[in-house]
Structures are given as structure tokens and as C-alpha cells.
Amino acid sequence: MEYHLETPVEEGVLRRLRVGDLVFLSGTIVTARDEAHRKALEIHERGGRLPLDLRGGGVYHCGPVMRRVGGEWRVVAAGPTTSARMEIFEDRFIEAFRPAMIIGKGGMGERTTRACERFGCVYGYLTGGAAVLAADGIRRVRAVYWLEELGMPECLWVFEVEDFGPMLITIDSHGDNLTEEVRKRVMEKKERILKALR
């Protein structure tokens, strides 16, 4: 199935999505990588507030190439980064900030899958490295936070997006995880190949 969704995405809509579905998202997405996840969780654990509300929005694992033209930031290239690095944070991040979609590439693990099931979130897989395609769905830069402290790839870029995608749902809110299933099959296959190796 193909879905065109708008942020904030309601949980009822989100729960309809299944592994293998395609999603195009319009509204607001925010980039966050390793450093931004760490910082956001530290702020949350101290009882502080983030500079913006992530509820129902998209969190994008992306360190874009940006360029300042006049007084305005423009996106040059903005494809997904490897999500697996954020696996150590993502379940707590989803619980704390309740985004509707985690967007990245490479897939994520069991902890994220459980958090998606429990709190109503999905993982949208963008084609890795396809930075120009991804940037095409970004209409403008709404804001940027923590640029000075974390630098261009790691800070929070707030993008206004229109039909951003296609994103393949590889983790849904029902406990299914496509890339994890493939990974398990690969490991079994590897054992068989190694056993037969001469």
C-alpha cells in the first residue's frame, strides 16, 4: 500500500501501516544523529525541554550538506545516514518525544522495534546515499538548532517537507522488522556457506 501522510500523524493512522508499505510524508521533519540524540536525551532526563515539539513528526537520521544563500539556509544534499548507530538511544528517544516516524537507512534493531510497538511509531527506510532524491521533497528550512555547538552534520535542521519519500516501512507498530528478518536469514546462510567451504 502507498500512503501520503501529514504531520502530526495520529496514532490511529500510524497503526494501519505495515512492513512493506510505502509512505510519502508532508509537514515537518527534524534531523537528528548521534550527538543530537545524546543531547536531547540529556535535556529530557534533566527535566528540560527541547527547542521544538517532536510529537507526531518525523525524526530524520541525516547529516545534510547545507549552503547559506543570502540570509537563508538551502539544502544541497540530504540523504539518510546509518540508523544502527542510533539504536542505543532510539527506544528512550521514542518514549520521551513520541515522534510518529523514524527515518533513516539500514534498518534498526529489537529495542527500537519494541518501542515502535509500545508507543506507536514506525521506521521509514530511504534509499541509502540517494541524497538528491531525498532533498527534492524538502521545501524549505524552517529552523536550525544547536548548529554552533554540534556542527552542520550533527545539529537539528527543521525541514518543511512535501511528499518526502518514498519511504519503505521496514519496522511497523506491530512488532515486525523486515531488515532484522533478512539479517537473521543472512546469518543462517553464512553458517551453511562456511560449513561447506573448502
Binding site: A77, G129, A130, V132
Partner: peptide, 19 residues
């Protein structure tokens, strides 16, 4: 997606990947 991305990147002279 990959091949289309490469094509557009070439046409617009933009990095094909942000990394």
C-alpha cells in the same frame, strides 16, 4: 532510486550523497 539519484546529481552538479 539509486540510478535516478545519480542521474539528477550529474545534471545539477550536486553531490550524489550527502556523505
Amino acid at each position: 532510486n539509486i540510478l535516478r539519484n545519480v542521474e539528477i546529481a550529474g545534471e545539477r552538479s550536486l553531490p550524489m550523497c550527502q556523505d
